[in-house]
Design a protein around this nucleic acid. Sequence first.
DNA 1: TCCGGTCGTTTAATCGTGTAAATAGATAAG
DNA 2: CTTATCTATTTACACGATTAAACGACCGGA
Lengths: 331, 331
Amino acid sequence: MSRGRSPTIKDVAKVAGVSSATVSYVLNDLNKVTPEVDALVRRVAKELGYSRNNAARALKTGRNNIIGCILPTLTSPVFPEIAQAVQLRAEAHGYATLVIDSGNAPMREEKVVRTLAKHGVDGAVALLHPNFKLADPPLFPIVSLDARFPGLDSVHADHYAGGRLMAEHAIALGHRRIGMLSGFQDLTSSFERRQGFVDAAAGRVELVWEVNVHLVPQLPPAAVEAIRRREVTMIACVNDLVAIAALSVLKDSGMSAPSDVSVFGFDDMQWASWPLIDLTTIRQPLAELGSQATDLLISRLDDRQRPTVDVVLPVTLVERGSTARVGLPLP
Amino acid sequence: MSRGRSPTIKDVAKVAGVSSATVSYVLNDLNKVTPEVDALVRRVAKELGYSRNNAARALKTGRNNIIGCILPTLTSPVFPEIAQAVQLRAEAHGYATLVIDSGNAPMREEKVVRTLAKHGVDGAVALLHPNFKLADPPLFPIVSLDARFPGLDSVHADHYAGGRLMAEHAIALGHRRIGMLSGFQDLTSSFERRQGFVDAAAGRVELVWEVNVHLVPQLPPAAVEAIRRREVTMIACVNDLVAIAALSVLKDSGMSAPSDVSVFGFDDMQWASWPLIDLTTIRQPLAELGSQATDLLISRLDDRQRPTVDVVLPVTLVERGSTARVGLPLP
DNA sequence: TCCGGTCGTTTAATCGTGTAAATAGATAAG
DNA sequence: CTTATCTATTTACACGATTAAACGACCGGA
């Protein structure tokens, strides 16, 4: 019976007593066949343990049923959550997902895209640096994550609104003197978060100091010094990772949040809720981001002509233990 | 010139004035051709921007140049480090990597394997639950991560030695009364870690209490109660995630490490070194684990007959701030 | 009875590579 | 000069699926 090889569409056809074309029609749900034949073919296919050869199908149709997911790194708490969502959604559509990290370097991003193209992905979901150069013509459709990108579909959280939310909550808690650890402004999301904060804070809050930092849990000396000056009642951070770095500096300096100073994050990554960290933050729906981007990509694969769309997802305030009301206004 | 389609091996052949077979020989480095023709073909291929169609090759050869990487979850600090290493190494061998999480459920593991098979992976690196049922015949070669697995190649850290190291360091610091948060013993690595600890501690340390916990950063009530009883000078944890959960409970209970009790982790995941956490732990070389497993898999793909091998990697002690010497022996 | 239209199924070509077998050309040996 | 031995290259088919086009059976209307 078993010839060692796994059964092909022809084996199924032979056993069922029909042609291979009929089998193909059945298995692709093109309902061109009578119900009896349909049932027969499906039964035989199941009995033989038939499973479609993806390579052959890809060769013939030009579609591989694989998408890519390009992220700056996997060793950050934020991105795996997105990757997981993409993968899950892709699988629901019958696609496999090639997760790949670009190592944060825009030059490597282009290489990564070529690598994916070589492996025949049909499209990709990608978190790209703004000065990423899109190949022309594009090797495959891309949906941009986390930021609008000219010429591409995109899905991102409402960073600007998040920034405003931060400022308004700070004000509601009575904070008037705030220090800011903002991201470098070439990254769209960092820019918009800051902009939202600054706009909402204007005239009501004094921005005592501000330092641009990389989105990693280590702070540059300038930031450490600023924190140690103890001039502010709150530190507003561009994301949770930076907020954790700030908490670390506080601890090293014999201070703590929120008794000496409040600390505010952004993202609500999984670990922000750990009691050891317990970070007040702006939540962006990471999983939602991933699954919507995937849906958008699949729809793009089915219709390359439709105009690009930008999906903006809402953010919410998550209040935890790293922030507190200011006791008395400072003198 | 450009016909819209990307150039095929035949296009290259036509331009170079040779047959497609010759081109194929050149591009596969089978050195069957004269140096001049070789050079010519390569030049033309580069000029046309030729890139091999992977689907066609896969169809013909039965190899897809894709490997799978099955991990319990991506939303844990430990596994992405492995995934990254696997991916990097696979790419060096010309393979792409399909990272996929099994969601910790052994039943889903078998489904995931079928999914990977459907997408035509040539093999996989996998962290499997011991009662995972290997299909017979196997759908593709698998290298087991983190634990020996009957019938499979494997790469894992020396958990037993790590357990011993833990106990010996604890003893050196003067700890005599220890509580243990061990993993459920059906998981090989959890079992071996505990065994190493117990063997080395025998007769020199009193194991005051022990609670089996899941490998997540939340503790069951029994564990929380045990910690609050304050009967021990050290808590030995099955991994860093659990250690962090223990630190959290301490904090919630108004205690802290190491002044009230020392806390000892295992893994040395990336965040163990954050000042907020600052965990003494046993380091297992995660990246090394991933890359060695990948090498093993590739070598297996080239020779299905060779006997299986088990690679055991050494672990090391990393001393940080969550443990301290015991001031005075308890009465 | 004959023609045209439907419908279900089969035939046959095709996708881009890899590779065994055939071929041609050159060289060496007898 | 013929024949055998290589070697570099080409010819030709197969891999497993999709799909346009051909086909044949059946039915209804004139």
